[in-house]
Each structure stands twice: as structure tokens, then as C-alpha cells.
Computed example of a mutant assay.
Amino acid sequence: MTTTNLTILKTMNVLFWVVFIGLCIKTGALIVSFFVSLFVNPVAAQDLYMGLDLSGVQRYSQNYYIHLATLTIALSGLKAYIAYLVVKIFLKFDPAKPFNPNVTRLIGTISHVAVGAGIVALIGSSLSKWLAKHGAEGLLSWGANEILFFAGVIYIIAIVFQKGTELQIENDLTV
């Protein structure tokens, strides 16, 4: 592998650490502010995290507010978990033998978690649309289609890596 590719991989590793830490902070902040809005001060629903305003949903229905906030927290947590799995790939990745069972398993797990995130986003999007029809305001954009597309691409990559791992193991046994 060329030094340019190794430099890019090292840079990507650092970037994914930053993304992972940022998503963990976002998820934690969402959880804390959600509980504050439920048990301490309902006005906190106006700014759950960086301008996220679900106060219109909270005024409409406390139960729907809980559902929507929980879906938002779950989606953020799943994104953080995907970033964590990518960080683990960097720890186990060997440029000399890129196809190994550990990396293949992690890529497969990422594809499954991404599908789960897509399903959470679809549910959140459907709930947001339903609430908008019934007069709630301040709803979210979920990006469910993009997440599911991402999950499909990662699944295809997981299949390629699985086949590559099988071929590499077979090649190692024949040498």
C-alpha cells in the first residue's frame, strides 16, 4: 500500500474518532435534556440539542413527545455505534491482509446496524408526518431514504469482503 493511502487511512481514523466522540456527546446531551424536559422544566423541550425544538409536539401530546424524542435519541445512538464500529475496523485492519474475518464481521455488523437506523428513521419520519397532519409543529427531517441507501451500499461491501476473506483464507491454506 502506498504512503498516500496509509496517510489517508490514518487521517480517516482520526476523523472517525472525532465523529464518534461528537456523536456520543450529542446522544448524551439529547438524553440529559430530554429527561430535564420531562422531569424538571418542560420549557427545555424548546432546545433539546443545538436548536432541536420539539416543544410543539410536547404541547400537542406528552406521549408523542416521548416517542419522537426517544426515536431521535435512538437514531443518534445508532449513528454513534456505527462510528464506533468503524473505529474498531481501523484497529483491526491490516493493509497487508485487508480481508480478515474480524473486519468482515464488523462490516456486516455495520450494515445491520445501518438497516436498524434506517428503520428507526422511517418510523420517526412517519410519526413526524402524521403529527404534522394533526397540527403538531416543529418536526424533524429524518433522512430515512439516505440511511437505507447507505445500509444497502454497506451490505454490498460486506458481501464483497466476505468473499474476499474466504478467498484469502483459502489462498493461505494452499500456500
Rank of each mutant, 00 (worst) to 15 (best):
F16Y: 11
I73Y: 02
A74N: 04
L106T: 02
N41K: 14
M1L: 12
S61E: 04
I73G: 00
Y64D: 15
V160P: 00
L140D: 04
N13T: 15
V115G: 04
M12K: 14
F161K: 01
L78H: 02
S55C: 08
L48Y: 04
V103H: 02
D47M: 14
T72C: 04
L48T: 03
Y64A: 14
G116N: 07
G22K: 12
C24P: 00
A80W: 04
A74I: 09
T4N: 12
F35V: 10
S126N: 13
S128K: 06
M50K: 12
A83K: 05
A117S: 12
I169T: 14
S61L: 04
E166S: 13
A117C: 09
N5I: 12
I119H: 02
F99D: 08
S76G: 08
A136G: 07
V160Q: 01
A45T: 12
S76I: 06
W17Y: 13
V160G: 02
N100T: 06
F35I: 11
K92C: 10
P98K: 12
L48R: 04
I123R: 06
L54Y: 03
I21E: 04
G28W: 13
K79L: 11
M1W: 13
T109A: 10
V113S: 07
L30N: 02
V103S: 01
G135W: 09
A96P: 01
H67S: 11
N13K: 15
F35H: 08
T3D: 12
I110A: 00
I82E: 02
E137C: 06
F99S: 10
S125R: 09
I123G: 03
A132I: 11
V40N: 09
L127Y: 01
S111Q: 05
I107Y: 00
G77K: 04
D53C: 08
